[in-house]
Design a protein around this nucleic acid. Structure first.
Lengths: 207, 207, 207, 207
DNA sequence: AATGAATGAGGCTTCATTCAT
DNA sequence: CATGAATGAAGCCTCATTCAT
């Protein structure tokens, strides 16, 4: 039986083989993240993933024990990538500026790269426990980026909110659903829509 | 050929039989709306629907010509019910009061009755044309409730928005996703969450 | 249980009711013969038959115990009708003239009225015994029309054949398949095709 | 995605694997041709085909994307085989001799090897376009064998016909239906029947 | 006599999963 | 490592048949 080890991080990249394996896994996850992000869990078959990778379906099972596992790992990859891009935003400027930039970037990524990311978090309803935990943790890490800024703004008096939690939920919901209505727009109109969305969402913190 | 007639509205409930048929269809639609609302299109099989109704899959085809059609009709039922309840809200008070009430009621319905309605709007990327039209129209009718109020408020100077469209999208997204995070709360906490959500969302129109 | 009696002929048309029943049965058989003759056994559902009669599927079972039985009876009706029309041809003229007229009429009926009759004799391969017998007998009766003329012509020296049986088989095969290639033609071309077919087939008897 | 490639011809039997695949496909097609030839399209289920091959239904989909495609490919295999055998007949002798030999061989094949090929040409009223084209082409190639000879005979004055097309249709119809009435005969009687059939059909060209 | 409703078997198709090589 | 092949469960849909009314 093929050993299904660390799917995302590699603790002991001792040998050359290990490193190669890691690289291969990343390739797979990148492609899988793309596909799942585009179409959602149900609409992507392992054949789709395999074909885009130009390998056979069977090979995927050498690296991942099941579709669920592959998908979860892909979500992690996707989430890490996403979060990483958000973390690279410049840390200077007022809280208002920084939050707006964060929102803007988040929506841009959602609309351009992962239009169906929303689906991944809704279907199928119940992940098996270990995977649910991993997804939850991911979401938390991501949330904290926003939470940090909002709290900072509230503390400094720059923002005014009824409830930080509620604001975060609304932010998240609106940003994640954006691809659903921005997706059909042309390039120009889409850019403006994202701008307006960012402006509108800033009003949630009183800006 | 089994008559797949008016699935939602009944133009000619002439005979007793017709009425009975109508009632049966409503039963089915209610159950279907529940299931699809809970799990989304792909994750619900016709067997699931049939089983919950305690009939066989085949019977469903006596009333609906396909899964797509059943699901669309279920969505229509759900949407009509939902919209009807919103339309019954009192029409007096300031725009602010009325919008807040509308939001509050919408979220209450979402959280209590259709906790996963969101899924219904995400699922099969592309409905066949006739069904897409029906869903779009439904959504439009529902949207107009909110749009009317927002525009009224903007016209009267009571509201301030960057873009009416964008505000509506954010409202919708936030309200629809609410069950995802309110659902787990206890009765009391949930009530407060809904209140806070309504307050928070009012800030989208500058209130 | 409803009594499934004489499907085609009525032995005891004692009461008014009996006669009405007989008429209804004929209606059904006429329609069924049309449909089966057009599309073949498999491609016709009882719903199709019922719909064209403007009754429900269930009603058919009041008159016929199964699709097989209905289809066989329909074939009989079709065959009787067909044979009757051939028997009405004028009995004067030379054998050659009469055979040619017979062929011509047969093909005309095949092409215009029962384009898929061929299918009925091939699919599904094995009728249950009683029905097979009935169909065989029908075919026999029909065959004898041609056999009689051919033998007469041979006896009178007007025709020359290697084997009467073989000639009959070829005649039948060619006439029955005609709709397959004549069917697509326009009215005018079709008429000429039928004429040429009759001429060509006459050469099978040396004419 | 399982590769549904060249189903009949194999352009690049590069590796051993490819050849094995080709062999498997041929196995399937042979079996399918038998079954479809025996019972016709509708009366054969994929389960039937799979069972006769001692595999599961699903496996067939590894090689063919649909029942239609499988059936068309089977017809092609059958047709190619058939035509190839006819093309191997010696090309010397008078046109009369050659046409008679062709007819004789065709009927022999029909009776012995493809007793119910006829059904394949009757069944689903309408093939999807691409498949219809393939079948038409096959039929054309086969037809040309006969047409060539008939035209040659007509040109040389050896044959006399009303219409080449019509003669070809009659030839075809008679030869294809032959198994239906020759099939039941014993070996000896059958041989004579085939001889008589060939003689009789020659009279269609005035011989 | 006739209907509306329901059933259940069977058909086609997809797809996650397994496995020998 | 990777592949090609095969499997089996599950899904959608059709339709002959039954039955209470």
């Amino acid at each position: 039986m093929s050993a299904h080890q660390q799917t995302v991080d590699e603790k002991t990249p001792s040998s050359r083989v290990q490193r190669k394996r890691g690289r291969r896994i990343q390739e797979i996850l990148t492609v899988a993240a793309e596909l799942f992000g585009e179409r959602g869990y149900d609409a992507v078959s392992l054949d789709d993933v395999a074909e885009r990778l130009d390998v056979t379906k069977g090979s995927l099972y050498y690296y991942f024990p099941s579709k669920d596992e592959l998908c979860t790992a892909a979500i992690e990859t996707l989430g890490n990538d996403w979060t990483a891009r958000l973390e690279q935003l410049p840390a200077d400027g007022t809280v208002t500026e920084r939050l707006r930039a964060l929102i803007h970037e988040h929506v841009t990524i959602a609309v351009n790269d992962y239009p169906a990311a929303l689906r991944l978090f809704l279907v199928p309803r119940e992940w098996p426990e270990p995977q649910r935990a991993r997804i939850k943790e991911l979401r938390l890490r991501h949330d904290n980026l926003f939470r940090g800024l909002v709290e900072e703004g509230v503390a400094s008096g720059e923002f005014k909110v009824t409830s930080v939690d509620t604001v975060l939920q609304c932010l998240h919901a609106s940003m994640t659903q954006a691809p659903l209505w921005c997706g059909e727009l042309g390039v120009r109109a889409r850019k403006r829509a994202v701008d307006e969305l960012a402006d509108t969402l800033m009003s949630l913190v009183g800006r």
